[in-house]
């Protein structure tokens, strides 16, 4: 049987959810019999292959225009899109900047921070432009599976993989369903 292709990527997050994917430990070896990780931030291939994957996984919140592009590309190239972790599902910690506003948050981070001298807010054309309101991934593309958690536990992630491989959309039992 052909292996199920998986691609992962991250948006505005801390990489903790990807760490949690790696945290499934030796179970990943068994998993590799059934799946192929094509692209991810920890592989050489950074973008999901053009011919598509079955499962696309996104970590992180929508914080800037670059995040929107990445999310849209992943959506176009996968059949099932998984929002992994609290940032991808709710916006989480990055979304707390909504309480002060993006402009205010940038000023505090790049200009007013105590350790900064003559600070400047980055404005290089190659950078994404921060959005006014940070949101979960589902506010810009359709999401099929939400896995909350900060980060979701390795067990929750492994459970999601096994359920998806069995052809089911995972419904998480209470021990895997956490907001922190």
């Amino acid at each position: 049987m052909a292996k199920v292709k998986i691609a992962t990527d991250w948006l505005g997050g801390c990489a903790g959810c990807h760490m949690s994917v790696l945290d499934i430990d030796e179970r990943i070896i068994g998993l590799l019999d059934a799946v192929e990780f094509t692209s991810s931030p920890v592989t050489d291939l950074k973008h999901p292959p053009k011919d598509g994957v079955t499962v696309g996984i996104l970590e992180g919140a929508i914080c800037n225009t670059r995040n929107i592009e990445v999310a849209k590309m992943m959506r176009e190239r996968c059949q099932i899109l998984v929002a992994l972790g609290n940032c991808a599902t709710f916006g989480n910690i990055p979304a707390m900047r909504n309480l002060v506003g993006t402009g205010e948050a940038l000023k505090r981070a790049y200009v007013e921070t105590e350790s900064v001298v003559d600070g400047l807010i980055p404005a290089s054309p190659e950078l994404g432009i921060p959005v006014e309101r940070v949101t979960g991934v589902d506010k810009v593309v359709k999401v099929d599976v939400f896995i909350p958690g900060c980060p979701p536990s390795a067990d929750a992630i492994y459970f999601a993989f096994t359920e998806l491989l069995a052809g089911r959309i995972p419904e998480f039992p209470p021990e895997y369903f956490k907001y922190d």
């Binding site: 916006g91 979960g136 896995i147 907001y179």
Partner: peptide, 18 residues
């Protein structure tokens, strides 16, 4: 309650008044 009713994403955009 969020856990009990499986709230896994927020349907409505949040009002972020501080």
């Amino acid at each position: 309650l969020g856990y009990r009713y499986g709230i896994d994403h927020w349907k409505y955009p949040a009002i972020t008044k501080r």
